[in-house]
Design a protein around this nucleic acid. Sequence first.
DNA 1: AATCCACAGGAAGCCCGGGAAC
DNA 2: GTTCCCGGGCTTCCTGTGGATT
Length: 407
Amino acid sequence: MSIFDSSKNKRSTLIKDRNILQTTYIPDQLPHRESEISSIVEILTPALFKNKPSNILVTGKTGTGKTAVVNYIGKELKKEDPEERNCCFTYVNCEIVDNTYGILFNISNQITTDQNKIPFTGWSLDRVYDTMLSDIEKGNKIFIIVLDEIDRIFQKSGDDIFYFLTSMNEVLKNSKVSIIGITNNTKFAELLTSKIKSRLGEEKIIFPPYKAEQLQNILKKRAELAFEPGVLEEAVIPYCAALSAQDSGDARRALDLLRVSAEVAERNGDAMITEAHVMSARNQIEKDTVKEVIETLPAQSKIVLKSIIEIHERKDTTVTTGYVYSVYKEMCNSLNVNASKEKMVANIISELDMLGIIHARVKSFGRNGRTREIELNISKDIIEFIKKDELFEPLLKHKPVRQTKLL
DNA sequence: AATCCACAGGAAGCCCGGGAAC
DNA sequence: GTTCCCGGGCTTCCTGTGGATT
């Protein structure tokens, strides 16, 4: 008898292969990205003949298939040149490693085959540069280096790595280096110095967001592989696609929606996935993201939010900035936290508004001044969720103690 | 039309912690 | 270890504003 038994027995009857619905899965075909693929392939083809392709900057919003397309091309490139005689494809995600050393370490360890690898830490950057340079030279081929989420490095470590990587070719004789930068920040190019901008962005490929019908095709392809036949109600995929297209055109989110819908159906023990499941999946996803946003809010913001909730529950008055501030100050007192000034609280209120947690609009009350009228924009169970935050535990504990004292 | 309330919202300065340079 | 510098959080200061009231 194992604690997993009962759960194991009611294992999925709907989903055949869960992996396919994960966002990390790279499919064999990437529908509606044919033109992007062929432009990148065209740019990269010289690499197969040991000529240096132009550097490419790939931009587009999240979930438009940038990473998938580039990795797919990488896979195909390897098929064309299985022994990596003429070109070698290297992928680094800069979100995970975001300092210059880490990136060089990562690239060079993918490139070098032999023993003298760069250690995880300890060398000076110059030595890493030199080692890498000679490794690349020794390779005697074209190195295509993909830097995903390229804007991350820039934020943390500036642009010296770009400078290094792009200027390598001036020194190299046998080998050459091409860079493919991927970013979802459309303004990324503007942040770079003009010299690097022109080097890095020799070619620019922009990935537009998917339209509803394109999302539909993508989902359909995945669903055929992932689900048992006949478990999807006909309207489910169009519905998922429409919802996602109207939000963002983000294929990742569309897939998440489909996957969570299936999970909801499974948990209910239903034999088919229906529109209703999609609806509740959507609610759940939204709730989860809101929860996460709230959970990661700084303490001050949480206290402001809690103040707003408290006033809101008094029901008798409208919530205004001044009112919030007075409640906020009291609460800081009882929590033993030092309170910020009015302006700060006003800023936090604006922030909460931008996050969509509250709805604040400026309204004039005539002689009674001009201030923001604040409404909550979250559901009841999320309000309960905030109240349970560990930050406010002292408040819960204090009240009963005081009461017993009074008695 | 003028007044006045209770802030909004922008600019500038202060302070503190962390990392780099010495 | 000390100093310097930088960035970001926060405060201070200031001007602006819509509309009920006078």
